[in-house]
Design a protein around this nucleic acid. Structure first.
Length: 578
RNA sequence: CGGGAUGUGGCGCAGUUUGGUAGCGCGCUGCGUUCGGGACGCAGAGGCCGCAGGUUCAAAUCCUGUCAUCCCGACCA
């Protein structure tokens, strides 16, 4: 029979003070609430309570994977370098790949992801189109030597990930499984109690709309997204927001003296116009060291990911290179540019008739420079990072901006790995063809942090019932009392017997300590047994999320608590286990 | 990788300027009083002052090196 857990036995060293190195709520509270402990930068241990939560998230993920027909496997974290040489990523992945050698000096890495490994498994024994499609997943530790690990579990160097991979013989089959996975990922977010948005994201080299990121909305998130009520949502890295440059009313091009005005902010202030009236110029260099001049609306930032899709090997030029190209820092414009410099302007500037730009000589700008007369732009592209107020590409309404935590991503890989690693199957006509692949990742430990980011208050964490470290904590306020403690024990054991995950705070602590710990750790329901109440035959049930306390006759407390727990599960779409 | 900062009992910090052999709060142990929102009193335990060199009669303190951790940046002319 199920039993309850005693706080006196549980290893849950809560902290009274905030850890100094924790900047965000999840890091702070997970540490204080005895869920995690830091081992090294970006490396954490999970204590018993954290471990319970982690396992519950994993089980939700596992359940959703099984539901879409993916099969659980377990691959090694330690991977031979040969596989990575085959795919080309030994050289491409960069210093984020944790590399090591064995005693024979053979190269290995600790897997940051498992495309190579899973492809090498499948290519040997998955031979016929008749056996396709196949989908497998694992829940496992991943290693990435991040430039700068930070924010506790949000960006670690070692973290827990669910990664799934699918193999197909047709685009239709891949698309179908990809759609199933995307639905499953939405379910995972809902069941974990996360407010999220599926967003368009960078699809890397492959192009096309073949990836979706699932973002948990949170100010602490490292990613930025723009979204619209019409349902559009996109990572600002790729968002096709439409900027609205305002331009400058002038009949003719006019050269004006602007001494010392070398930034957009200063220029806008000098002319007493909005920054959106100006045009910002940037100088870049491609992989052949050829110079490029880029023009974007003054109130927008350029987006290197987008530019790199237009200009191969793009990087910004430094001051010395600027001078070498004959350009004047702070006063660059499209009129009278030196020979041999290729110009590209952001598409939003196409409709802008009169530009405010640098005059290509020190301390002078041009206002009212006329596109098509005073200068020409031959190439147009989307170069800017979307921002709040830009127009939705789907419906034209102003976009709003939010921050998010990327908790998961689905991706159509196509033949990228199967081709590089010669992983083929035999099709109906007897020909060998590379697999079409998809990969699908969930940051499990990151999801745990994201949940805390969304569910906390000044007293601590507030776990959704689906992922809580225990559904009910029973708190006898005086352990030594001959009526209170036995009453609490009875409640706890009856709850446990009915399948409710129950903790009994049997510590000989003062009421304040127990309340503070219960709120900090964030059990969804607290059953409080005090001397006065028990004598009168009642106990209290406190809802951690709302703070509401209700008084319930002692002989009805168990039934009431079970009712609340079941309701809470139902609200998240999770079925309670018997 | 560049800039900034910090390493002192389990945790959070002071002490470093002006070298003299380590202190405070929390926690921990014991006893007593308390007991519905992080109690109080008394008595205790616990520290190669990140590590390695150097200067000095003497180093937590000064110098050099090194390691670790945190913050900012690593595109926005």
């Amino acid at each position: 029979m199920e039993s309850y857990t005693c706080m006196s036995v549980l290893y849950a060293p809560t902290l009274k003070e905030d850890p100094v190195d924790a900047e965000i709520a999840s890091h702070r509270l997970l540490t204080r609430g005895a869920m995690i402990r830091k081992v090294a930068a970006g490396v954490y241990s999970f204590l018993p309570l954290g471990s319970i939560v982690l396992r519950k998230i994993e089980d939700i993920v596992r359940d959703e994977m099984n539901a879409v027909g993916s099969q659980e496997i377990l691959m090694p974290a330690l991977q031979p370098s040969e596989l990575w040489h085959e795919s080309g990523r030994w050289d491409d992945y960069g210093p984020e790949l944790m590399r090591l050698s064995d005693r024979h000096d053979r190269g290995f890495c600790l897997g940051p992801t498992h495309e190579e490994l899973v492809t090498s498994i499948m290519r040997n024994e998955l031979r016929s189109y008749r056996e396709l499609p196949k989908s497998v997943f694992q829940i496992q530790v991943k290693f990435r030597d991040e430039i700068r690990p930070r924010f506790g579990l949000l960006r670690g160097r070692e973290f827990i990930m669910k990664d799934a991979y699918s193999f197909h013989s047709s685009q239709e089959s891949l698309q179908e499984h990809y759609d199933d996975m995307a639905r499953a990922y939405g379910n995972i977010c809902v069941r974990c109690g996360l407010e999220y948005r599926p967003v368009e994201a960078d699809s890397g080299q492959i192009g096309g709309k073949v990836t979706i990121e699932f973002m948990a909305l949170a100010d602490a998130g490292e990613a930025e997204l723009v979204y619209c009520d019409c349902g559009f949502a996109s990572n600002t890295e790729v968002a096709q927001g439409k900027a609205c440059p305002t331009g400058y009313l002038a009949d003719h091009q006019e050269k004006i003296h602007t001494p010392g005005v070398s930034t957009i902010a200063a220029l806008a202030a000098f002319l007493n116009v909005d920054e959106s009236a100006t045009v910002k110029a940037l100088v870049g260099i491609d992989e052949n060291e050829s110079p490029y001049l880029l023009f974007v609306p003054g109130d927008h930032e350029v987006n290197e990911i987008k530019i790199s899709h237009v200009v191969k090997g793009f990087r910004l030029a430094d001051d010395a290179e600027l001078t070498r190209f004959g350009l004047v820092k702070g006063y660059i414009g499209p009129v009278g540019i030196p020979e041999g410099i290729h110009c590209i302007a952001d598409e939003s500037l196409k409709s802008l008739e009169r530009w405010v730009v640098g005059a290509n000589e020190p301390d002078y700008h041009l206002v009212g420079a006329r596109l098509g007369e005073d200068f020409e732009i031959l190439e147009w592209a989307d170069l800017i990072t979307a921002q709040s107020g830009d127009r939705c590409p789907d419906c034209g309404a102003p976009l709003r901006i939010a921050r998010g935590i990327e908790v998961s991503q689905v991706f159509q890989l196509g033949e990228k790995y199967s081709r590089a690693m010669n992983a083929t199957y035999t099709d109906e006509s007897g020909e060998d063809r590379p697999f079409l692949m998809g990969c699908y990742g969930v940051g499990v430990s990151r999801t745990m942090a994201a949940i805390v980011e969304q569910h906390n208050d000044e007293n601590g964490m507030i776990w959704p019932i689906s992922v809580c470290p225990g559904e009910v904590i029973v708190i006898p306020l005086s352990v030594g009392d001959a009526t209170v403690f036995p009453a609490a024990e009875t409640i706890a054991s009856e709850l446990a017997a009915r399948g409710i995950q129950t903790v009994l705070d049997d510590r000989d602590e003062r009421a304040g300590v127990k309340f503070a710990d219960a709120d900090l750790i964030g059990w969804p329901y607290q059953i409080i047994c005090g001397k006065r109440g028990v004598t009168e035959g009642v106990a209290e049930i406190k809802d951690r999320a709302t703070g509401e306390k209700i008084s319930v006759p002692i002989d009805e407390v168990v039934a009431k608590a079970i009712e609340l727990v079941i309701e809470a599960h139902a609200a998240l779409g999770n079925l309670i286990e018997e």
